[in-house]
Design a protein around this nucleic acid. Structure first.
Lengths: 252, 252
DNA sequence: CACACTTAGTGTATATTGTACACAATTTTA
DNA sequence: TAAAATTGTGTACAATATACACTAAGTGTG
């Protein structure tokens, strides 16, 4: 076994890419690093895996320690192991990702992480280590995932409107969808429970609220669900007319 | 940096799951281990990653050193890191997979690997380490892949018949497909070049030979190819009649 | 309190794709 | 020359995807 000693000098970490959805925008959870290396820079919540700890366990622990988030389902995505990706030595990192409802969790950044904050995925700056690459890989995974199954309920509050759901899909897929076809597709899957409630406090016709039917979802998965949403080719509607009365004829 | 020293005591390896297709059967390349641990057992071709070596590079090197296979495209699948998966200490392993044409490569097992041999995926025995889990994960990846794009040309010789292609898909998907629908689907994708040649030395009507059109494939991928093959629900044909003359009427 | 504003909600006709299914054609072999 | 083996082909029907526009139901305001 002596001959192998030279190999036992490396370390590994886990990094978590946590997606959320808020204000019509896809977000990712970042922490402002409170220690070296990259002290003061934004990065993904990650840390070393303990010697006696499984990878999945480590990912959960690290996430909780850095942000206070608990009971989050994490899925392994990819491992990054470029030789010089970490200044302290040879460190490979296993990337995990998850989808959560932002409003349901309260961030409690630890002392190591000085700050944890949701950032718009579209506007993420230059991150510590190779975290931009990692984020990218996870974002691609999310896009891929959302095409193959009606994921994304994880990102919405328990009660949501069909329009919110559609906006979520549009944000992830970076495309526009046709309202009627989207609704038809979602509703025929029988995945939503109509709560027979409506929105309140909006200055327009309030939308119905729905809830995700998790049992039905498990059932569909077991059946080998396939799910595809195609981009709407509809041309942009012409600009809104200014605030004046319109005669019925104009509406044809 | 001192505080981190305890983390720099682990090692990592790469393990390769190489699939091939031969005699109508999906195969995986295994080596008979020539050193401890698990000396004498069959396992995946894998080894430690050198301290100054990237993961992808290591996967390629290891594969070549153990089997003589070169220029094989390898794709990362998943990382396995259970605490006690390796008797020598904390070792996590990154699994890679690939598809190759068996007939195109000659195996040249190294002295470390006493033997490299293709095994039927369906009949793989108890392997070293957690290699059964790794193989499983990669097999699932292959199934998933084959559903989303017309992969698998990688597994066939450069010239092949449509029936061979169909058998390959049936082997991977563990299902039966309808001949006419399969051909229609494949041919309308315009992925095959009809070589205007036929099989030789078969005791029946010889089949046309086709070649895979790689350019067209790249193009389809860029367009965001989607591809789905559904199981044939056709009932098994009744048992063949014995070798006797049949009148035309009987064939209705 | 009427009307302007905003967003929700709905249906249909057409095109595309998937599916089930059976027999004639071409080669070898005895 | 007949049988065996396997290739190769088409069509009708069903299911799914797509394009598309107006009415409904609230709120705000002048």
């Amino acid at each position: 076994m002596n001959e192998f000693n030279e190999y036992f000098k490396s370390a590994f970490t886990v990094d978590n890419v946590i997606f959320g959805f808020d204000e019509g925008d896809l977000k990712v959870l970042l922490i402002k690093r409170g220690e070296e290396p990259y002290h003061g820079k934004w990065g993904l919540p990650g840390y070393f895996v303990y010697p006696n700890e499984d990878l999945d366990t480590a990912a959960k622990r690290v996430l909780e320690q850095l942000t206070g988030l608990r009971n989050v389902f994490l899925e392994q995505v990819k491992t990054f192991g470029t030789v010089n990706r970490h200044p302290f030595g040879r460190v490979i990192t296993v990337a995990y990702f998850s989808l959560i409802k932002i409003s349901h969790y309260t961030l409690q950044p630890s002392s190591i992480a000085r700050k944890a904050k949701w950032h718009s995925v579209a506007e993420v700056e230059d991150l510590a280590f190779d975290h931009n690459d990692i984020l990218n890989a996870c974002f691609n995974r999310l896009k891929w995932l959302v095409r193959s199954r009606p994921v994304g309920f994880e990102l919405l509050p328990p009660k949501f409107t069909l329009t919110e759901l559609q906006h979520l899909y549009e944000a992830i897929l970076e495309t526009k969808l046709d309202k009627r076809n989207f609704r038809k597709k979602i509703l025929t899957m029988d995945l939503l429970v109509d709560l027979e409630e409506t929105q309140e406090g909006v200055a327009h016709r309030p939308a119905r609220l729905y809830q995700f039917d998790r049992n039905r979802y498990e059932q569909l998965l077991a059946e080998g669900l396939s799910f595809e949403l195609k981009e709407s080719k509809r041309k942009e509607p012409a600009e809104r007319k200014p605030r004046t009365k319109r005669t019925p004829q104009e509406m044809a």
